[in-house]
């Protein structure tokens, strides 16, 4: 294997045998290596980023080179959920269900601004979207961009690969309420104007 020596070195550094009668950590390392090189994504696109996800699998970028090309339509057979696009409130429960249906070990990549934190559709008082998929499911890697280029997606998956080999691929959910600087933008909600006034002047 081409990347083997480096990876083995990394494993040696980061893993220490846990206490116990029988240790399976070496076996676990081998499995992690296998998992890292065989991430089957779930066929699943939400919006714009899905097109770049498709482009990532298509001829020029070809995710299959690294073994990420077996796109499974059934969540039961997938390892990796690439959340590509805006999560609307209506879609959020379905994503949660899909995540629950995937067998562990499972990983999540938040692709693009919307899946990371709401992207361009975030404004104070918005009513339609969930600001970041990490509010409902744990995320391993965030890929920024709107939409990210396919290269960025590949880099994201390779980063996840590194995490898995190191045995550190624990996803995180974000705290319930996130205050970021953008939330202070005042939204200019207008009041209704009078129709009679409007008609008079036009």
């Amino acid at each position: 294997m081409e990347i083997n020596p480096k990876e083995l070195e990394l494993m040696g550094k980061t893993q220490s045998p846990p206490p116990g009668l029988v240790n399976f950590f070496k076996v676990e390392d081998v499995f992690n290596l296998a998992r890292a090189h065989s991430l089957w994504p779930l066929t699943f696109g939400l919006a714009c980023c899905a097109i770049e996800l498709m482009a990532g699998g298509a001829a020029r970028f070809d995710m299959d080179r690294f073994g990420f090309g077996v796109v499974r339509p059934s969540p039961r057979q997938a390892d990796l959920m690439i959340v590509a696009g805006t999560i609307s409130r209506k879609m959020a429960p379905c994503i949660k269900t899909l995540y629950d249906q995937m067998p562990s070990p499972k990983y999540v990549i938040a692709l693009g601004g919307c899946a990371t934190a709401g992207g361009p559709f975030k404004y104070p008082g918005q009513y339609g979207i969930l600001e970041g998929i990490d509010k409902i499911i744990p995320v391993n890697v965030y890929v920024p961009g709107c939409p990210p280029r396919p290269e960025a997606l590949l880099a994201g998956i390779l980063e996840l690969q590194k995490q898995i080999i190191e045995g550190k691929a624990q996803g995180r959910t974000s705290p319930a309420v996130v205050h970021d600087s953008q939330d202070n933008r005042p939204a200019e909600h207008k009041n209704a104007i009078s129709r009679a006034e409007f008609r008079k002047t036009t």
Binding site: R89, P93, G118, G125, Q126, L130, D183, A187
Partner: peptide, 24 residues
């Protein structure tokens, strides 16, 4: 509606999760 001034709980995850449960 112009009288709708936005949902104050826009980024409140608990609110969102409640909505999600109701939808289900």
């Amino acid at each position: 509606l112009k009288s709708f001034k936005g949902e104050p709980a826009g980024s409140d995850v608990e609110q969102s999760l409640k909505l999600i449960e109701e939808d289900k």
